[in-house]
Design a protein around this nucleic acid. Sequence first.
DNA 1: CTCAATATCCGTACGATGTACGAGAATAGA
DNA 2: TCTATTCTCGTACATCGTACGGATATTGAG
Lengths: 238, 238
Amino acid sequence: MSRAGGAGAPGVDPEQLWLSSARPRRGRKPAYSREAITAAAVALADAEGLEAVTMRKVAARVGAGAMSLYSYAPDKETLLELMVDHVSGELPTTNTLTGDWRADLKAIARLQRAHMLRHPWLPAALATRRVPGPNTLAFLEHALAALRPTGLDGAAKLEVFAQLTAFVAGHVAHEIARTAASQSPDRAAAEARYLAAVAADGRHPELAEALAAPGRPLTPEATFTRFLNRLIDGLDTD
Amino acid sequence: MSRAGGAGAPGVDPEQLWLSSARPRRGRKPAYSREAITAAAVALADAEGLEAVTMRKVAARVGAGAMSLYSYAPDKETLLELMVDHVSGELPTTNTLTGDWRADLKAIARLQRAHMLRHPWLPAALATRRVPGPNTLAFLEHALAALRPTGLDGAAKLEVFAQLTAFVAGHVAHEIARTAASQSPDRAAAEARYLAAVAADGRHPELAEALAAPGRPLTPEATFTRFLNRLIDGLDTD
DNA sequence: CTCAATATCCGTACGATGTACGAGAATAGA
DNA sequence: TCTATTCTCGTACATCGTACGGATATTGAG
């Protein structure tokens, strides 16, 4: 809990952060909790986006002074780690495996996508590497269990999961950006005019053709499914 | 060039940004150039990371006052767009297609990976949606040409390219994070001890096994190749 | 009970950031 | 020369993360 004993230069010692639990027996009792502060930060990010998560605003949400947060997390970066692990607690970790590892893996990816759409700040927060917290590790354990029938070795299983998560995050990030863009009609119209102008300049024949063709709408859901299936069906077990 | 005529609320009008070229015939001559400022920002990001790119530092690099930058880009967000498009100019756009679209697509992805490793801030900068500038569009045109033999319709070709780029960005982001983590021995050791402790708690048997198994080292290069091949070989042309 | 030790709470303050504002300087047509 | 236009950039402000340290609460020691 205390600020004393901070770790080295970059980031925070994961052992200090995730494995220390004993309440100090001396000193004032905490008025808040890491849980409550993290939840407030998550609620703020859900409602107003990641850039709205400032120490002052989070503190205001829990009714604390800004500097009080530093008794619960050594810095803002760490608060972000706490947030990521906090929402990872929403993911299921048991009793959902069928034994068909491809189907299980696809289900896991779908859950991750839904999860990230529910917390649109997650892809951005995952972009910088983080030390997995307990909830993240529980989910990882679940994913590794799903991969057990593949017979892949440990490192390969971890790789598959990392790549799958990166793929989902990348997809959802694009999906969110595209949705946001189309919600601003002026922006969307301006961009369409711009692209039309480029396509008309004669030096982008392929682009012109691609934009001109009608084609079916291509929902994000369908695109996600298609690429996910490609990725997973292509996985070998040797 | 002028600040006058700023666009709507979010982002910048792409037509204003990319399609206006005529120098105003009245008024003081510009002492710098958008090119030079963008190049300075890129150099700064390459050398010290994206978070080192501040208006003041970029301005200092070109020998200008901080506020002078606002004659060349309406805000910092736009400067980031300029940076992304600037480095996209390094990508080849002609005479590299063999007609074997799978091979061409793999080559394009490899170029993107090398490009992003050369500019490690790129994956993060691409995470938020941007309007493609001329260099980006030239590269897109190249990728669409590579996809021509597939016979896919326009929207599908654009989707494939977007997904491929997202995949590469996700992979490289992880690759960079992993490299950075292993460059700080204290951090790496602390994380290893933490994971070992978790694996030893009995509630993470799959993780324990995955960490215990030796397995070959798995270079990022090899992992990238493997997943890239899966993704592209799985693409259908119908 | 008293008191020292310890931990939390948080007001104040500092440096850094993005950028609004506007005064001054430079340029080109009238 | 005058005036309209454009670029330059010092100053200023709101906001950010967070260092510092005094006030406050809690507990074990004497």
